[in-house]
Structures are given as structure tokens and as C-alpha cells.
Design a protein around this nucleic acid. Structure first.
Lengths: 209, 209, 209, 209
DNA sequence: AATGAATGAGAGTTCATTCAT
DNA sequence: GATGAATGAACTCTCATTCAT
């Protein structure tokens, strides 16, 4: 299962070829965005990466900002889908936090391109960051309500959790050596941040490995 | 053989004025960098913000990159000095972590402009991020060595700590309402991240308030 | 794995239009280069002269230096072709020198724009001067080897010959009145420089008129 | 005896220090002009080379063009002086041509800096070239009138002579190895150009060695 | 729809010139 | 007179966007 689903709903209802070109541009956009960031990415380079003429870009996106927007939406849709799916199978908020955390850790290890785009856009596109934060905030608020997490300010807990996961992703993406064990460290940190006592860490970790 | 006998002219100029202009440029650079990031900032805008002609910029910095470098240096120097001072007065690594954390929280509340630059540049200038991380890493390694902190991977602990503080700063900078109490929440989170048991939080917090 | 299956787009564009624009830029480049020299010529002026937007220049030449390079290549290619053609029809080195000289004299009278560029660039673009000198040097070395020319230092003979022809071109280009007779004077000077005795001048001149 | 006299009449009548600063600027101007040409030379670099502040330049020259003009004048004054001096001591036009030629050859070997400036400015400053050509033209016209030279178009003879000498200078200035013998080759070329028969070369050469 | 040449606003940088000290 | 900081016009080059084919 991959984080970014290629049958994004946005592409629905268009003739095949148009959809294919659009997908090429989306993929290229993600690649280039991941490498250069939103300020370094140029329409020319995205079109070249997509094996398409510059002008073609504008048959699919009114401006470069709209491409960023679309990529961003797709990334968020992935998170959203992950969360909805989760709601149906798991009720313990602590496990949900670990699963969500694990999704991002997986992304960094399995699909570095998307992960790079995720991290890069998170740092630079405010509305993307806000959306991600609100998704995580929902999960944490549930945990607090359920008495499972410490009663801390939710926003700060979100920030701490997201911040630490993102830093972990960044490190993973830039390191060649991915030492094992680091993953469970990050899980423990996540649990610490939301306020699950250390003595409860062990059993929870066993459920998500 | 030449007629030239006079010595090279000594710098007799206007050090006051030069220094003042440079400071205007540094301040303007921080402001603009904070708002636009290093890619969005332009020499023209920085010069305008500094109430100075475009060309004047280049009397003080060889290129726009050097201004970024100078700003990050200044930001790091501030942290560095704080840390050195700290070394002389305080030995408990936990307190040192809290003081360091508090410095950044203070920055966000007392000098939003610098804080904005700090956060923005941390996300976008690798050189700067690395330097900050190595400073924090030193403090944490000390704590682990002293048996005061949990024995986790130092790098990930650094990422988690820095990430959560930075997210806190971001929120503070964008919120109008700065509720009190948040500060001690963040302190507790910081202690959780480095692995100081919750029962020890109270006394430590009292020492840095 | 990617959805992209279509081949890289083949260059289907508008080769006609592209070639025309490029020629406009080359012509404009020659004109402006001739008037202002390589240091005085600006992309803006060349584009204006070519009735084209500034940015269009960079669709055809990566930098202003490459335009200079292209212009000098074209100028040298003209001479080179002339020489190769010559090799096949004429063996007397003295005649070859006269034909080569005549080519440049013709250039000055028939295509003043190119001639101006030739003279201007010869004085200012070392790369171009060296190429021209080596072409002329080849012809003279042949003549010396064949015992047709005086045994002088080839390099200096080249300099003298080229120098005198260029000065002749310069004068022709700045004078309104092009008196006849001057041409044969220059032919005699050329023969003197390479060391063909004066008594042999008459018959040779008759062959190239 | 050097080509460029340091007690240029222009400096007369000023207080010592002013004159000295002006001379520093003239020397620096010649050096930089020779290295970078009139388009590459900047006021900043000339001032630095003269060990003087930028602003000082404008106490002596209203604009950078006036510095070029002044350097140019000085160079021409040197030629002029050489010619006037010559008028008093030598009547044979052929010898005068050889002495003039020799002056420039000497310059290239003894004072490369001035020589470089001479060559560089000759190619790029029209009014300088015109002045030099008129001086040489005078000498050649005299020779034709006296029946000493062939009756060729004076202007073309000037161009050929100046052109060949300048090319000789250029080569000398860029070569490390200055082979002897080249000098007399150039003398012979000069005599050929003005139309002195080869059999008369020997005695004339002996008079100027 | 796709193409890619053309466009022109805007960015970084240089440098002749001015001017307060 | 000398100084060097400040100025701003001009230059090279980039790139989002338009448009004829």
C-alpha cells in the first residue's frame, strides 16, 4: 500500500490521454518540487521531466501555483484516506497515533520522492501545513477526550509530534545508513509527546510492528 | 620606478555611518527573510526596507547569499553565547535544556522578527539547521552521559526537541492570543522528549520560571 | 513504475520561423558588434535591432558570448571555404595570397556590415584573430616552402599582411569615395610583404583582376 | 630614452602633491587600460591601482573618458616629440621611417606597459588612431615627394606600415621568446611597404642598428 | 490538445558618478 | 584635496505566461 494513490479522484471523468498527460505532470511536479522546493521548481523543468512541451502545462494548470495546489491536495488526500481507513479498524487513540506516525516513517523509507515532496511542501506551503496539522489534531483531541493522553494543549502536542516525525523523515531522507531501531525510538518519542506513560509503551509498540 | 611614494590610504571613513547602514540592512534582511524566506527575498526589497539604494546593498554584502549567511550567523551567535554563558552557571543538563528552550520561547515572544527569521531559515538553510542541531545535540549528549536523560538516539531526540520548540514558536508567532500556561506545557514536553520522568518535572520548572 | 508511455515529443515545431529569428539575431549581432565592439554590444540593443524581445535572444544563444562566437565562426567559415575551394583550383601560392587578399577587399566593398564586424572582432576577440592568422600562415608557409616567397619569419609576414589588409578595409569602410586603383595598390603591397619581386607583380595582378 | 616622457606638459603649473596624485592616476590608468582595454577598465580599479580613493579620481578627471583622453594625449605627445626631434637630426625619409618604426619596436620591448596601452587604445579609440595615422602619413608623404618612396596611395601605405608594426608589437608583447633577427625582418618589411627597393635595404639597416 | 518560439517583467549585480565629512 | 559610502541607471540572464501553428 502506498501513501499516494495514483487513482486520485481529481483525474476522474477525463478522456484517457488527457488524464495520462495530467498524471505525467503531477508526477513530474512532485519529483521536481521534492528536489527543488516550490521556489526552485520551474514550469520548464516540470514539463521536461514530464516529457511534454512547456505550453502543454497550461492546458492542465492555469498557473504553476495551481500545480503546487494539486500536488498538495493529492498528498493530503493520501493522509485523509489513511485516517478514514483507520477509523474503521482501530479505536485506541494511541494505536492510531502510532499508525499515523508509522505511515510517515514508511513514506520516508519506501517512497522517498513523495516523502521529500511532503517535507518540502510542509515547510513552505502554509495551507498544506495547516491541513496536516488539523488532521493530526483530531486524533490527539480524541485521545485526550478518551483519557488516554495527558491533558496538554492540543496544538502544542500536534506541533511537537509533527515536528519530531518530520525531523525524523528529513534525517532518514538524507542519511545513507538507515539504522534499524531508530523506528521504535521514534515511536516511543511519539508516545512520550502525547503523554502515554513509558510503562505502557512496550505493549503498544508490539501491536504496530 | 614610479612617482608613487605616499602610503596606501588608511581607512579614515565614517565607521559610524557604515555600521548603521549595515545594521539597517541586517534588520531589513531579517524582516524580509522571515516573511519571504531565502528564495522569496530580493535585494531590491531588502534595500527598500532598509531605506537604502539597491547598489548600497553591495557595499556591504558581496551577494544576497552573504546577507543570508550573516543573518544566520547572528542568529546562531545569539544561541551560542547563551549557551556559553550557561555553561558557567549551571551544571544540570535538564536545566540547561530548559534554559535553551526558554531562550527560543522568549525570542518568539519578545523579538518576533528575529524569531520569524529563525524559524524560516531553520527550515530552508541547511547550513543553519545543522549548526543549531549540533548545539542542541551537545547539550543532550551531556545529559545522556550524566545519566540524567533516557538513553535514546541523540539525533532523533534533537530532532524531536527542536521540532517541537519550533512548532511552538510558529504557533506563537501566528497567534494573536498568547495564552499563559502554554510555556510550561512546552517545558514539560521538552523534558518528556529528553526522557526526564514526569515526577521530576515540577521542581525543574520551578527553577526556570 | 510510471504511467508515461508516450515517446519523447519529436521536434515538430517551426524550423522556418526559428531559423529566421536566428538569422535576424546574427545579422543584428554583426551590425551591433561592428559598431560597438564586443564590449559595447548589449543583448538589449541586438534584440532591438533584430526586432525581437530581449528574452528571445536567449532562446537562440545561451549567452552573449555565444553570439560573438557564432558570428566569428560564420566569418571564419567564409574565409575557410574560400580557401578550400582555392586549394582545388590554384597551386601558385602567390595567386592564393592575392585571392585571399581580394576576398577581404571584396568583403569591405560588397558587405560593409560583415566587414566591419570582421575588422572589429579581429582587434578584440583573440580567439578569432588566432584562427584567421593560422589560415593565412598556412598559405604563406606553403609559398616559402615552394620557394615562391622570401624566407622571412612566417609569423611576422602574417602580421604584416593581415595588418595591411585590415587597415585597407578600415579605410574603405570609413571613406565615402572609393577610388579605383587602390585595389591594385593593395595587391602590390601584399606581394611586397610576402617577398615576391616587383617585376613579377604585373602578370600576377592580371590573373586576379 | 623612453617613449613616454614623465614630465608631460599637462602636469605643469600645479602644486607638487596634486601633480603627484594625477601622475599616479595616469600611470594606473595606463596599466589598467593596457590590461583591460577601455571597456574593461573601471574607475574603481584605476583608483585602487593608484592607491587613491575612488572619489579622488574625480578631483582630477571629470569623467573616465577624460582619463582615456589624457592617456591618449600623452602617448601621442611622445610620438610627436619623437618626430619633432627627428626632424632636426635626420633628413632621409627612409631613415625617419626606420627610426619611427624602431621607436615602436623599442617600446614593445622596453616598456611593455605603455606598449600594451598603445596597441590597445589604437584599436579601440578612434581619435587616437587618427592622430597616429596622420603623423605617420606626414613622414611618408615627405618620402614620396622626395622621390625616395614608391608612388603609392599614401593612406594605404600608412595603414600597411602601421598595421604591420602593430602586429609585430602585439606578437612581441604576448611572446616570451623574443628571437633576435625579427627586428631587422620588420625593418625590411617596413621598407618594402613604403617601396624602397630591396637592394637599398642593407645600408639603411646599418644606419639604425 | 499539443507544441515550442516569443514575450517582457523582474532578479542579481556592476559601476560611473555624487556628496557629506 | 582626499575620502569612501551612497546612489541609481544599465546590464545579463531567468522564467511564468501567451499564442500562432
Amino acid at each position: 500500500m502506498t501513501f499516494v494513490t495514483s487513482d486520485s479522484p481529481i483525474a476522474a471523468g477525463y478522456p484517457k490521454k488527457r488524464a495520462r498527460t495530467r498524471r505525467q505532470l503531477m508526477n513530474a511536479g512532485m519529483t521536481v518540487l521534492a528536489q527543488k522546493g516550490p521556489d526552485g521548481a520551474t514550469v520548464g523543468e516540470i514539463a521536461r521531466e514530464a516529457r511534454v512541451a512547456t505550453g502543454t502545462f497550461y492546458n492542465h494548470f492555469p498557473s504553476i501555483n495551481d500545480l503546487v495546489e494539486a500536488v498538495t491536495n493529492e498528498l493530503t488526500t493520501g493522509v485523509q484516506i489513511g485516517r478514514e481507513t483507520l477509523d474503521q479498524i482501530e479505536n485506541d487513540p494511541a494505536v492510531r497515533v502510532l499508525v499515523g506516525t508509522g505511515q510517515l516513517l514508511d513514506l520516508a523509507q519506501d517512497d522517498p520522492e513523495s516523502a521529500r515532496a511532503f517535507v518540502s511542501l510542509l515547510a513552505t506551503v502554509p495551507h498544506f501545513r495547516d491541513r496536516v496539522r488539523s488532521i493530526i489534531g483530531g486524533a490527539i483531541a480524541d485521545g485526550v477526550t478518551a483519557g488516554r493522553f495527558a491533558e496538554r494543549d492540543v496544538d502544542f502536542t500536534v506541533d511537537a509530534l509533527l515536528g519530531s516525525v518530520v525531523q525524523w523523515m528529513r534525517t532518514t531522507l538524507s542519511d545513507e545508513a538507515n539504522e534499524q531501531g531508530a523506528r521504535s525510538d521514534q515511536f516511543r518519542i511519539a508516545l512520550s509527546i502525547v503523554g502515554v506513560p513509558a510503562r505502557a509503551h512496550g505493549p503498544l509498540l508490539r501491536r504496530v510492528v
